[in-house]
Design a protein around this nucleic acid. Structure first.
Length: 130
DNA sequence: GAATTGACGGGGC
DNA sequence: AGCCCCGCCAATT
């Protein structure tokens, strides 16, 4: 029996994943950042692996990939689903996140549901500690 | 309660 | 690009 807190955490993760538009990709870490509240990339991966069969149809779990734009496990099925959405993979099996990366939920949606937005990143701009 | 595992990320070299 | 190492959180043993 899951505690209400655990159940709520999973539901929040699923709710965020549902916001990812078709044809776009989000990394596990990005989903965790939006969820906030002590959620990390590994937790997102675990939650996605625990999606009830009844909900797999409506949660676009295939749009969550690792930060390299590649699929770690269950690759064939996931890649096939993404290709149906127009995502193209290169010969190395990874999609360029600079092009497909989801920018996160709108500020209005995040504020309404109590989530966070993704830190703004410009393509090609490297974070510098300076 | 300790150790390990897992659909991971990031910094340093 | 690679490789190594550490951190993070949840579940399992």
């Amino acid at each position: 029996m899951l505690t209400p807190a655990e159940q709520a955490l999973y539901e929040r993760i699923y709710l965020v994943v549902r916001q990812i538009p078709s044809g776009r990709l989000a990394s596990y870490g990005d989903v965790a950042t939006v969820v906030g509240g002590g959620c990390d990339a590994r937790t997102v991966g675990y939650a996605l692996g625990a999606i009830p069969p009844a909900q797999q149809r409506e949660i676009p779990w295939q749009r969550v990939v690792n930060r390299e734009g590649a699929i770690s496990t269950r690759g064939l099925e996931q890649r096939h689903l993404l290709e149906q959405e127009g995502v193209e993979f290169d010969a190395q099996g990874h999609a360029p996140m600079s092009h497909y990366r989801w920018e996160g939920p709108s500020a209005a949606w995040a504020a309404k549901h109590g989530f966070q937005t993704l830190p703004t990143r410009h393509e090609g701009e490297q974070l510098s500690l300076f």
